[in-house]
Amino acid sequence: MARLTPENVELAHRIIARYPRPKSATIPLCHLAQEQDGWLTDEAMVHVAELVGCTPAEVLGTASFYEMFKRHETGRYCLNVCTNISCQLLGGEELLEHAEQVLGVRPGGTTSDGMFTLEDVECIAACTEAPAVQVNYRYFHRLGPDDLDQLITDLRSGALDDVVPHHGTLGRVHQDLDGDRIANITPPEAQTEPVWIRRHRELAESNDGGAS
């Protein structure tokens, strides 16, 4: 557990190559580490620091700003119950209480079988579907206590494996970006024109060409 595997180190080098400065890859590499271990271990942060050329303290400082980087062992599923205003009005708090009873843990806790970590979260931008729940950041809408029971059963049985990957895997799409989709790795000090302006200009010029 801990440092990046040789395959991931190789991927890490590809990710670093997308940026003008290695340090810019800190967050993607933290995602990579979290994807590997399910959470962000100290050893992984040390490894990320080595890879991007900064100190582990800087990686920790950056990663700890973001709640989605977990610095403690996390269950396979991170169950986030919203208790902000819309959800609260439509039973979010009762839902959280129900979850506590069913799972036997308080918010922040992880079940002894390592399956679930329960979290009490603020608005997750699904107010129209209140009360809303996320499992590993995948949404489940308008849940009552029975729906939640069913959800937990399905997650345990593996019935939702296609829908909800294990904790940490949210970054997969971004980690495997195609080479030709990489925007621009010119260092800022060497840039003459922001890349988006250039693209717009090129686009406009080619449109002009087509119209005439």
Binding site: C54, T55, A57, E58, L60, G61, S64, F65, E67
Partner: peptide, 10 residues
């Protein structure tokens, strides 16, 4: 040039 201390958390 010794960034061994940093703000953590938020």
């Amino acid at each position: 040039g010794d960034p061994l201390i940093h703000f953590i958390d938020r």
